[in-house]
Design a protein around this nucleic acid. Sequence first.
DNA 1: GGGGCCATGTAACCCGTTACATGATTGA
DNA 2: TCAATCATGTAACGGGTTACATGGCCCC
Lengths: 194, 194
Amino acid sequence: MDVKTLCLGALTLRDASGYEIRKLFEEGPFGHFYDASYGSIYPALAYLLKEGLVSVTETQQDGRPDKKVYSLTPGGLSVFKAALAEKPTRDRIRSEHMVRFFFADYMDPDDLKLVFDTYLAEFRAMSEKIRSLDNQNISQPRLFTRGFGLAFYDGVAAYMEENRDQLLTAPSADTGVVNFQNGKLKSVGAGDDD
Amino acid sequence: MDVKTLCLGALTLRDASGYEIRKLFEEGPFGHFYDASYGSIYPALAYLLKEGLVSVTETQQDGRPDKKVYSLTPGGLSVFKAALAEKPTRDRIRSEHMVRFFFADYMDPDDLKLVFDTYLAEFRAMSEKIRSLDNQNISQPRLFTRGFGLAFYDGVAAYMEENRDQLLTAPSADTGVVNFQNGKLKSVGAGDDD
DNA sequence: GGGGCCATGTAACCCGTTACATGATTGA
DNA sequence: TCAATCATGTAACGGGTTACATGGCCCC
């Protein structure tokens, strides 16, 4: 499921600009199970417009550049429904946090502690955020999704709290770190490089 | 965190071929929080070998092509530890299932039911699989990770069972599907296309 | 005054997936 | 005999991220 389709979905909620859709991914209800950046959203909207799946209303603004508010067309809605009718692909999860827990033996205990507590705090914050939402006038599916989020965040947060010591008091090997920057391998290991 | 780094991690567990590493991602303990395909693993191993972060032993075999068993070098281990010491990037989740639940209004009720029950069955199966593992002689971090998996799978599965009706009995709009194939938008929507 | 937010868009790049190429062995 | 599994690798393609480009307003 690509960003184009997600944009159509976002526009079923309400008319929005590319900027607003981005925020929806970042902070809104989508944030829990998807993400997308400007670099993919703006081209996606341009494509959808060209194909007649969305329409646009340019609102002139004070100083800022014109705000382009997009709306879903009937065709766009049909295409979105068709996308939902497809067989879903497997969930894709990439959690660097879990990788670190799995390989905790190879981490500095203080680093590990920090990663752990930061992660836990994030879950708690997410849970709080969902709890703070008003559930009045919300459709069943949205409520279900919120509940799912709560079940997940609260469940794993509770597990983490209960088993914090189990992970953080395990003995770890010595450190011995080399050349690693910005998430890129900068080898150096043995012998020759190119 | 790229496939290169994950390969180093896999090789801390035991020496392995590219083929075996793939299986680790597919079925093994990594499957829960990462994935990778041959097309990324083989080039990654070639790179790591070139950089001296892994070594290789070619085992000749009966009929099959030579099996290349890779081992982590001290340099490789250092680089891996350095990678773990980096600040973890945000977890990235892409769940088409959740998208479908969120937009359940726009789905055919039978489709939705199928997606729901298949998803639930997957969680139950994952939970069973973890439960069937032998926890003897397993290090603390691995146990923690397994427990985390259980907390997650069992937690959300329970939630789904308890709230199945809530989601599946909600009224949905009419269907009206157009031209959608293989996860690609084939528009058609309104008016002109290029 | 300066940082952050509003607002859109493009281009280069990176990384990974999919599909292709090859081929023998084993078990149903 | 036919499918699946073991086994490695390449090439094309795709999709999305990052960084760049631009610029004014608003609040501290």
